[in-house]
Design a protein around this nucleic acid. Structure first.
Length: 556
RNA sequence: AGUCUUGUAGUGUAAUGGUACCACGUCAGAUUCUGGCUCUGAAAAUCUAGGUUCGAACCCUAGCAAGACUACCA
């Protein structure tokens, strides 16, 4: 009945907690992006994980913007993040901001000062770094470490009231300067920044650090399972310390390995560089691994969710082959995309025994993968057609199943034709192929008894519309452009974008709908780009079809 | 250097002391009015060395390797 699917380590923890009645069996997660950039496929993993866990255990998920650094955060990013999460198919319980808690956080800080667990430090950043010591040597106390509670209270209030310049003072937790965990060596809780915040405006000039905001925000929201990535492991001790000292709801932090993918980079810093230095045309350039770029390129949200499901969740570092993502989108689009014909690299084909003024209308089903075919469209046929240049070979090799002198193929949805002749220009380029058709071989009504190995797609020249097509390839030439010791920018693939200014499409495609995936038969999956205008359509190639012939050719 | 985390086919990911599972990828074949889809099959893995045990991917010890941390970023 119930297919027993093994649990990932987080599901095991949660089920154990539920068994033990922890938090009354309640599961509440959160997705906590900092609004300082666009979401990428790595965030999608985290989103699917956090929302998925809550869904599975009848819990809830908050969307919380971790906006404690006014200098980097902007409303533009908040909006794009919300759009992406929604598009991925998830609904958050509450839309919250760490900045909503600034006042509460301030009170928490005062509590710690009163307990003698925090102090105002006048040291400079360099001095504080110096005081930290090294992993093998303990740190040294700041000269301001033993100020009285009263003095600390006064100074902290003055910090809040704007009496000091940026960087003049900080509030530090008083923990353990000899801890092997560097994060416990009197970490900074608050810094002074006279900066405008995207939500609180100029109400504050002191801002809490991540460590003094994140865990407390979780706690305030009664988050039960706070899931983050591996690099926060050393922060967990501090996370727990603040919760314990403050005696607030004990949220717990768990860490998993972030997603890495071949032939791309994933850090916001590098993504920002690609945009700023012009390697791509913006955050949603279809070559980017951002959610908005994948969407624009034609990836479906279902395929991304499926991908996140397949890659699993664990604690070991990983680098997922991008071909898995491509598999997921092909699998989804194969089931849903409507089939259409388009010729990307046109070569003229003349059917010499087909009357000049004759036309026929053939009918092609929209989706052969659906039982009912999802309806059909009409495809006009005439004496002159565009076919793909690669579908004709002057001296065909033995396993070539397409056109060549004397060879026969079927024109998809139409007739079987035989190649009688071809025309070359002075440069030796083939400019025209001449064929004759077999009238009895009409699609759906074939009495010719002729068997052909190949079927090719085509578009009637008289009825074709012209469009621009953009073919995308991997953004980088190497599997791991971000590896240690290399400048990823040197590995950008110069052929990652190939623009075809005029490809030919069958008439029905002229009314293509934005956001819908189409399969250009034998060529791949495509979708309308946002830069399309009426009569000036632009199609993005989402992904090619699997191409075993190309592999054959490569092998020689 | 110290602390922490992690080592299973090419890439991911299961097996929780008892036949090393599955997927992607790769290779071979069948089918096909898409060289797609679908179907069949194949090759391919427990970091190393000891120990405990009838039996170890799993437990213990010691190595080795990779990654993280030493920001007034998150």
């Amino acid at each position: 009945m119930s297919e027993e699917r093994s649990l990932n380590f987080l599901e095991e923890i949660i089920e154990e907690d539920i068994r033990n009645g922890k938090n009354d069996g309640r599961v509440h997660t959160r997705f906590p992006p900092e609004p300082n950039g666009y979401l990428h496929i790595g965030h999608a993993k985290s989103i699917c994980l956090n929302f998925g866990l809550a869904q599975k255990y009848n819990g809830q998920t908050n969307l919380r913007f971790d906006d404690t650094n006014p200098e980097k955060e902007e409303t533009e990013y908040v909006e794009s993040i919300k759009e992406d999460v929604k598009w991925l198919g998830f609904e958050w319980q509450n839309e919250l901001y760490a900045s909503d808690y600034f006042s509460q956080l301030y009170d928490f800080a005062v509590m710690l000062i009163r307990k003698g667990k925090a102090y105002v430090d006048d040291s400079t950043p360099d001095q504080i770094a110096e005081q930290k010591g090294t992993p093998t040597e303990p740190g040294t106390p700041s000269p301001w470490r033993d100020r009285s509670v009263e003095e600390n209270l006064l100074l902290f209030a003055e910090m809040r009231d704007g009496k000091y310049q940026d960087g003049e003072k900080v509030l530090r937790a008083k923990i353990d300067l000899a801890s092997p965990n560097m994060h416990m060596r009197d970490p900074i809780m608050y810094r002074i920044r006279h900066a405008h915040h995207h939500r609180t405006g100029d109400a504050w000039c002191i801002y809490p650090m991540y460590d003094f905001a994140h865990g407390q925000s979780d706690s305030i929201e009664k988050i039960t399972h706070s899931v983050c990535t591996l690099e926060f492991i050393p922060h967990r001790a501090l996370y727990d310390w603040f919760i314990e000292e403050l005696e607030i709801f004990p949220s717990r932090q768990y860490e998993f390995a972030r997603l890495n993918m071949t032939y791309t980079v994933m850090s916001k810093r590098r993504l920002l560089q690609l945009v700023n230095e012009g390697f791509v045309n913006g955050w949603d350039d279809p070559r980017m691994p951002t959610i908005s770029a994948l969407r624009r390129r034609g990836y479906t949200s279902a395929s991304i969710r499926d991908f996140c499901d397949r890659i699993g969740v664990a604690k070991r570092e990983n680098i997922i082959d991008v071909s898995l993502l491509e598999f997921c989108v092909r699998e989804d689009l194969n089931k849903t995309a409507w089939r259409r014909m388009a010729v990307l690299d046109p070569l003229k084909l003349v059917i010499t025994n087909y009357p000049e003024d004759q036309e026929e209308i053939f009918v092609g089903e929209n989706n052969p993968e659906a039982e009912d075919g999802e309806g059909s469209r009409e495809i006009p046929f005439s004496r002159e057609l565009w076919i793909e240049r690669e579908d004709f070979m002057e001296n065909p090799t033995k396993k070539y199943f397409r056109l060549g002198p004397g060879l026969m193929v079927r024109l998809k949805h139409a007739y079987i034709i035989k190649c009688d002749d071809f025309v070359k220009n002075e440069q030796g380029d083939i400019t025209e192929v001449h064929c004759s058709y077999i009238p009895e071989s009409k699609s759906g009504n074939d009495t010719s008894a002729i068997k052909v190995k190949g079927t090719i797609h085509w578009v009637s020249t008289r009825h074709a519309a012209q469009v621009e097509v953009r073919l995308y390839d991997r953004l980088f030439k190497v599997e791991d452009p971000g590896a240690e010791g290399r400048d990823f920018r040197e590995y950008v693939n110069p052929e990652s974008l190939q623009v075809i200014p005029s490809a030919y499409i069958e008439p029905d495609l002229a009314s293509a709908v934005p956001g819908k995936g189409y399969q250009f038969i034998r060529k791949g999956y495509f979708t309308l780009d946002k830069e399309s205008a009426p009569g000036q359509l632009v199609f993005n190639r989402t992904v090619t079809l699997k191409d075993t012939w190309a592999k054959e050719v490569k092998k020689g």
